[in-house]
Design a protein around this nucleic acid. Structure first.
Lengths: 239, 239
DNA sequence: ACCTGAACACCGTTCAAGT
DNA sequence: ACCTGAACACCGTTCAAGT
């Protein structure tokens, strides 16, 4: 099951074709997917590949070059959804796909806040997003600001996701949280104390959807106020 | 100007009272504020304090204990704004203060996504936020979801801030960006290509304000639909 | 009680040497 | 051209020893 190529016993010298950029990259991705970015070291990678650490430097200048390649590879996992007739529906699909990409590949956010900039890394994503904005007849400033806000919201959801995802699965988490709220002095913390009786358990995915819908509604409202006679559903992608 | 206590020449043994939890913590904060979290090492800290690395272990169990103390200290920099008559205005002030905390102390986000949970670390913040929600007569579910969305948006803004802040100050950035958009094929990327002519330069702070206002408007709308006869401005914090 | 030297198990990486 | 051993400059940390 392991990709390790050293079967125990005295270690042999690895044959000449053992490594390549692609093989190293695949091994790195495997480590990241199974055990996380923190466990990815040159030594570990060499061990998995049945090779001495220095062998990797023939194929990559340094660890940073490997990480850059990893980021590109993970970004390529983005699945562009089909374009829908309704631009608001298209936006919903696009941003949800982007959210899923970041949540399913948390290493992307750890690697570099810049590499996560899908608008530049995946021009097709930016094109689709701004095509929707155009179909909604939004001016450039409103379009760019809306995209920036949505981008930051999605990044925030994804950053916070790993620590909080465990709460959704732990049936004791919210009861425990309510109990801790109940211990707060009602005089100094009346509002928090009141929440102790009835604290709604909401999942991470629901939080994302709630914020997504709020933002989509704001965009739809801005579009409606701009072209009141023309509902956004029938706006076509003109020349 | 440096806090270093070794004035060159052969190093003397440091006198007995040199270190304390507080002194180590202050030195750690100084390093983080001036040169960032990445440069904070036990060795560097010891050097700044005119002491051998091992001396630190008398006062902190390990580096992680130092980082925890640092996080607490940085969180304590949060400045609670005055409560306003209008709950929406209060929310604006509270979230802006939180945004400023994260942006001025980027180490907070690097330390741990959990420590950044000011709602728990600073109960007064949570209390003020939910007091506003109560004054707006929002049900618990809407209140919790709105707070969660705003929290994630602020975190996203702060995560993205360091890399993008430099763009605001670089007069060549947006022209360069427009030029790179112009190189895209107009047939495959019509919407991006169109943006090349008129790409609005918007600062990080403006992006935050735009999202903040959108979210506040959504909250005000939810409050208005809940108690149509009672504008939120005059809602009092009664029992 | 507090500071230290020596030593250990890790990192990533350079450089010269093998095949 | 590709893989490797030895060595280096870093990490954080344990442990026994100094004062």
């Amino acid at each position: 099951m392991s990709t390790s190529r050293n079967a125990g016993g005295p270690r042999q010298r690895a044959p000449r074709g053992t490594l390549s950029q692609d093989v190293v990259l695949k091994a790195a991705i495997t480590v990241i997917d199974t055990e996380g970015l923190a466990t990815l070291t040159i030594g570990r990678l060499a061990q998995d590949l049945g090779v001495r650490p220095m062998a990797l430097y023939t194929h990559f200048r340094d660890k940073d070059a490997i990480l850059k390649a990893v980021a590109t590879e993970l970004l390529a996992r983005f699945e562009m959804p089909e374009r829908r007739a309704d631009p608001i529906e298209s936006l919903r699909g696009l941003w949800t796909a982007y959210f899923r990409l970041l949540v399913d590949n948390p290493a992307l956010l750890q690697l570099d806040t810049f590499t996560v900039d899908i608008e530049r890394a995946e021009p097709r994503f930016g094109e689709e997003i701004y095509a929707c904005m155009g179909r909604l007849q939004l001016d450039h400033r409103t379009a760019v600001a809306s995209v920036a806000v949505m981008f930051r919201f999605v990044v925030g959801c994804a950053v916070v996701y790993p620590t909080r995802r465990a709460w959704d699965d732990d049936p004791e988490h919210w009861p425990r949280h309510r109990r801790s709220l109940a211990t707060l002095a009602p005089e100094t913390y009346p509002s928090l104390h009141e929440l102790a009786h009835d604290f709604p358990a909401i999942t991470q995915d629901t939080f994302f959807e709630y914020g997504l819908e709020t933002q989509l509604a704001a965009i739809a409202a801005a579009a409606a106020s701009r072209s009141p006679s023309e509902p956004h559903q029938i706006a076509a992608a003109g020349p």
